[in-house]
Simulated scan of single mutants.
Amino acid sequence: MTTAELGRLVGYSTQQVRDLERLGIIPSAERASNGYRRYRHPHLVALRAYRGLAAALGPVPARRLMPALIDAAVDDAAERLDRLHADIADERSRVKEALRALAAAVEESVDVFRDADAMSIGELAQALDVRASALRHWEREGLLHPLRSAASSSRSYGARAITEARIVAALRAGGYGIPSIVRVLDQLRGQALTGDAQRILSDRLADLTRRSIALLAAAGDLHELLELSPRMLETGGETRLDA
């Protein structure tokens, strides 16, 4: 196949195929006597496998992974793919747990709150199963605003601060960074406390499901890639990926 023919089969431009070859995403092509590249079936398999991984993981992680899949022993490559599925499953569990924690925060936020129910930093850290240093960090980042005692400078967390701390903990468990959480809390303050937070966690869950399905869709090409690898290395013939 020429560069253009290979690209058409996968939906990439000629330049994209050349760039992916340069990055080691697909093996180097043979060169005809006129200097033109010539690709064979293993190159097509590798390109399809990359396309499937890019749909599941994003282009940048897929670019990092593909050279390792091509060069690694089959056992190592299979382990890397297993880890991708496991990572998605782990993140899905964290997001679901974050949604449950958020639901609990919502339910408790409507309860009558007495001053005596305010928490110290240690009590709140224990209730959220986080370190007190995490609460102090969230405060420095503007996520939490506990009351401070003028006499002792000790922190006291009332109803609003407790609910916001639970939302922060839930979003952090769901994989969100500080800047994203700052934006969410800014939107939520003065409004209903949970609508946007629940939506972004639900969106994250939907994206994980999409990635999981995309990874399954890529399985056929990844399977063929792994099956080709040992034959390509053993025969030294037309099926070598590194020909």
Rank of each mutant, 00 (worst) to 15 (best):
T235G: 09
T3M: 05
Y176F: 15
G58S: 11
R166F: 08
L208P: 02
R18V: 01
R210C: 04
L99F: 05
E238Y: 06
V130N: 05
Q191I: 00
A78R: 13
A159M: 05
A4G: 02
A89Q: 13
M232R: 12
A68H: 12
L47Y: 04
L185M: 07
G237H: 03
S109C: 04
A118T: 08
T209W: 00
E227F: 00
T194K: 01
R172C: 06
T209V: 08
F113T: 02
G122S: 12
R160A: 12
R199G: 07
L216D: 14
G237C: 03
E141H: 08
E108W: 07
E91N: 11
L171D: 10
L226P: 00
R64N: 12
R211C: 13
S153C: 09
R204W: 03
G58Q: 09
R114M: 08
E141Y: 00
E227M: 07
A77I: 07
A62Y: 04
A132L: 04
R155C: 01
A4I: 07
R155I: 01
D90T: 13
D76L: 11
D111R: 15
G177M: 01
A118G: 00
M66S: 09
A151K: 10
A4R: 09
D129W: 01
V110R: 15
A78E: 10
M119L: 15
G175V: 10
A29C: 12
G177R: 09
D186Q: 14
R183F: 01
G177E: 14
S153R: 15
S154C: 06
I26K: 01
L193K: 01
S93Y: 08
A150R: 14
K96M: 07
A103H: 09
A214N: 15
R92E: 15
L102N: 05
E238I: 07
R63A: 15
A125K: 11
D82Q: 10
D115E: 10
S13Y: 03
A169F: 02
L124V: 03
S153K: 15
H137V: 03
D75F: 03
Q198E: 14
A165S: 15
D196P: 01
H145D: 07
A62I: 08
R211G: 13
D111T: 13
D186W: 01
L20G: 03
Q187T: 10
Y36E: 06
L99W: 01
M1K: 04
Q126N: 11
D19L: 06
R131F: 06
P61S: 13
D207L: 08
S180L: 04
A104Q: 14
T3C: 10
L233G: 14
L147T: 09
I162N: 02
R172Q: 10
Q187P: 00
G35I: 06
D19Q: 09
L226H: 01
E97W: 00
M1E: 06
V110F: 15
L241I: 15
D75G: 08
R155Q: 05
V168F: 07
A169N: 12
D186I: 00
L65T: 04
L65A: 05
E139G: 10
A77V: 04
D71T: 10
Q198R: 13
G52W: 03
S133D: 15
A55N: 13
